[in-house]
Amino acid sequence: MDIQAYITSGKLELYLLGELSELERAEVVAMAAKFPEVQKELDDLEEAMFAIDELTGKIPSAAIKTKIFDSLDMELRDEKTIKPTMAPVEGKVVPLSPWKSFAIAASVVAVLASAIAIFYASKFYEKEQQFTALLQEQSVMAGNLNQVKLEFEEKEFQLDKLVAGDFRLVKLKGESLTMQKDASVNLFWDQSAQEVFVAVNNLNELSEEFDYQLWAIGDQGPIGIGLVNEGMKMTLQQMQAVAQAGTFAITIEPKGGSVSPTLDKLVVIGNVV
């Protein structure tokens, strides 16, 4: 087909004037799609016809504009305000959309990563606390162990003394007295080494203001040789040294002990055999 002849036939002008039949219109559209020259001619003609109409045209009266927009008032909406310079052209939006999905994917990954990080951070914090608790426990146990060790050494030392020394057992009883009938204290005395230990079997608990005080009674009368802790039962408590005594006794004295025994508060007494 001679495209130039088609272009100059006048058909395109009639097409633009809206005078062609439906069939002829379809033909022009097909030709324009197939031949760029036809499309170009159509574009040029449309532009020229608009320019001609614009030049020969007249501005309608303001009254008719008001009337038109009154007629359209119910149809038109105000929501979608187009900003001419800002509004994106549809065609330009499309190539951007893959980035949108990348951005969404990236956000999802970021959110997931944050969630995982928070999860492990909380786990770490939890473990660290457990670790700290274990350290504290361990240090408590070490302290306990140390104390046990000290106690053990002390016991061993005492046992060594008892075994190695020349100790005599003096049983101090409350049977013959009025304070506490079942009161009972064992006293170990190495006269040559001048060492005294007591082991409380049974003594009533005293209030805060009083103490049990051990007395060695010899030629020079009663001598205070230390305070006895009634709570420390079945364990040896070392008393002050004494070289000479015929009788040992325990009295209740005001806190801290007295210089001379309060005899009406004599709890236990025992003679060296």
């Binding site: 109409d53 045209g57 007249k58 309608p60």
Partner: peptide, 10 residues
């Protein structure tokens, strides 16, 4: 409006 009114008022 000018061009379109022109088409009509011609």
């Amino acid at each position: 409006s000018r061009a379109l009114f022109g088409v009509i008022s011609r």
